[in-house]
Amino acid sequence: MAATLRDVTTYDLKLAAPLAAGFVLFFVTPLVILLALSFQTDPQGGHYGLTQYVNFLGDSFSLGVLGSTLWLGVKVTVLTLLLGYPVAWLHQRSPGWARGLIMLLVLLPLLTSVVVRTFAWVVILGRQGIVNATLSWIGLIDTPLKLLYTEGGVVVALAQVQMPLMVLPIITALSRIDPNFADASSVLGAGHWRTFRKVILPLSLPGIVAGCLLTYAAAITAFITQSLIGGGQMLFMPMYIYQQASTLQNWPFAAAISIVFLVSVLVVVSIFNALGRLSRGYANA
């Protein structure tokens, strides 16, 4: 019998065709149009060149906006990681019923719209908001602190809004770690802290990297939270693009900024990815 056995380890790529077609039609095509638009020298069209890119890259103000946006993402990601990791850890160490509760609390914010969550932060950070009211009740401050419309406010609000994106991948990574490893580590004489640092943390690195990547991408592009909590005195890339495209109808410049932003984000993402590959090697070693 020379019947060829079907190879079950490879899949027919045709199954992915509808998704691929949708991707080309609704993502790649607009991106190509965007790229073409960014080479127009003026909004009326006609001439093509690098004018828009020269305008952006040769302008310290525009570069400052780009830099502060990327830096904002770093701050938010670090804060989210510091706050999110313990939550994931707690989830891992809790009995069954508490796990369900923690998971519900982590997922709950995803069930409300970002606009609602952000407005809640306006109420919390306002002059008569919860933070200021509590501080003045305790007697720590006389006049309300300015919390809303500051960068600190934006970072805190974004960290809360994006928290599930960090916690969920870390929970997944932690749940894959064999509990025997921690036991083995303590049998061999390591304390809790050393076990965490040398065993748990390295093994959960893939989850951390995935979480950071998601949080970072979401934080720097969060138009709503950035503008509602940051106000008109803070300019980040999403607002800059909106302003140029919508208010000023300067589509070529808006397109060029978008491309520059996209490329910068891709660079950051590839750095994260490289870290991720390193960490996988580390975890499997």
Binding site: F119, V122, V123, G126, R127, Q128, G129, K146, L148, Y149, S227, L228, G230, G231, G232, Q233, M239
Partner: peptide, 19 residues
């Protein structure tokens, strides 16, 4: 200046919050 709102709608929120 206590606030430079990103749009006029925000001014309403700021009054409401006593900002």
């Amino acid at each position: 200046l206590a606030a430079v709102a990103a749009n006029p709608g925000q001014l309403a929120t700021l009054f409401q919050q006593g900002q």
